[in-house]
Simulated scan of single mutants.
Amino acid sequence: MNNFDEYLKNKLRESVENSSPSDYLKNKIDLKLKSTEDKGEFKMKKRFILIASAMLVLSIGVFAAGKITGTITSSTSYYNYTKYTDVAKAEKKTGIDAEIPESLGSYGFDGITLIDIADTDDAGAKLNKRKSFKVNYKNEVGEKVILFVDKYPETSKPISEQPYNEIREINGVPVYYSRVENLFLADEKDATEEELERSKNDPFFNLAIGSDKREENASKHLIFDYKGVQYALMAGDDMDVNEFYKMAEEIIK
C-alpha cells in the first residue's frame, strides 16, 4: 500500500460510534475509532495483531468476571515523545523495560505514542487495565513501520495457539507472521453475505465499520514474546517478508 502511513493517520482521525469487536492481532484490525477530543478508542475481539491504527495484541483468558472477549485501547492522535532518547520516559510511564532499536532496517525512529489498554469480558467489564506504547519508524520515502510493545497478563493465551500464517525462529525465539486483508465499510449492511461470512470464519480477514467509503487493503504483522515483553510489528502490504523478519532480529539479540 503506497500511502500506508497517510492512510493510518487519516483513519486515526476518523470518528465512529457503536464500535463492535473484530479480531486484532495476530492481527486482526479494528479501525473503528472513536474520537474524543484528541483520543481514539478502539474495540477489538480476540486476537490478531494489529492495527487499529495502531493497536496491539489481544489474548483470551477466563477470569471470575467472565471470559475475556476483546480489548479496548486508546491513544492520542499525535506523538507523546519525538526523540529517541525519550524511550526511557515511555518505559518509565508504562512500567515496561523493552528493547527499542533506534532504527529497523532502513526505517529510522520517528516518534512514540502512549496507549491505554483494558481487556473486556463477555459482560463488557474492563479488566487488566494497563499502559503500553507504540514506536513509529519511517524510511526516506515516508513509509512507516509500527512497533507495539505490551506486557500481557499471565493468563493470556499463548501466541502459538493464535492464528498465524508462518513461524520462524530467531535466536531461539519463535516469531509469528500474519498477513491480514482488511475491508472498510460505512455500514455493515454494505457488506455482501459472502463478506459477512468470511469475517466470521476467516481469521485473516477483517471487516471494519465506520469508514466514509469502501476501501480494501492488506497489512503484514509479526508478533513475538521476548524477555517478558510482547512485541508486535506492523507494516503495509508492500513490505518484503524477509526484510520484515530482519527487523525482528534488531530486537531479538
Rank of each mutant, 00 (worst) to 15 (best):
A65G: 11
N80F: 07
T82A: 11
T85N: 05
V145L: 05
K32I: 06
N171W: 05
F48E: 13
F224G: 07
S77L: 12
A232P: 01
V87E: 11
S132I: 09
P174G: 03
D5V: 14
N136P: 02
V62L: 13
F4S: 15
L196H: 00
F224W: 11
L147V: 05
V229K: 08
A232I: 03
Q162N: 06
E17D: 12
M1A: 14
K34Q: 01
R168H: 06
V57N: 15
V149M: 01
L8V: 15
E216N: 06
I49N: 13
P203I: 03
K157H: 01
M1T: 13
N80Y: 08
D202W: 00
L50A: 15
F4I: 15
A235S: 14
G70S: 07
P158I: 07
K134F: 02
K28H: 08
A98K: 01
G111C: 04
V241D: 09
Y81R: 02
L114A: 09
K144F: 08
M44D: 09
N3S: 15
T120W: 02
A186M: 11
K34P: 00
S35M: 04
D238T: 13
A248E: 11
S15F: 03
K144R: 13
E193L: 10
K131D: 10
K213N: 07
L104W: 03
K126V: 02
S20L: 13
E143I: 11
S178V: 02
K32G: 14
V87S: 08
K9C: 13
S211F: 12
G172M: 12
R130W: 02
T36P: 00
Y7I: 10
K200I: 00
K43R: 05
I117H: 12
Y24M: 07
T85P: 00
E91F: 09
M55H: 15
K83V: 02
L207Q: 06
V62Q: 14
V57Q: 15
Y137Q: 13
K39I: 12
I146D: 04
N18E: 06
E193P: 04
I60V: 11
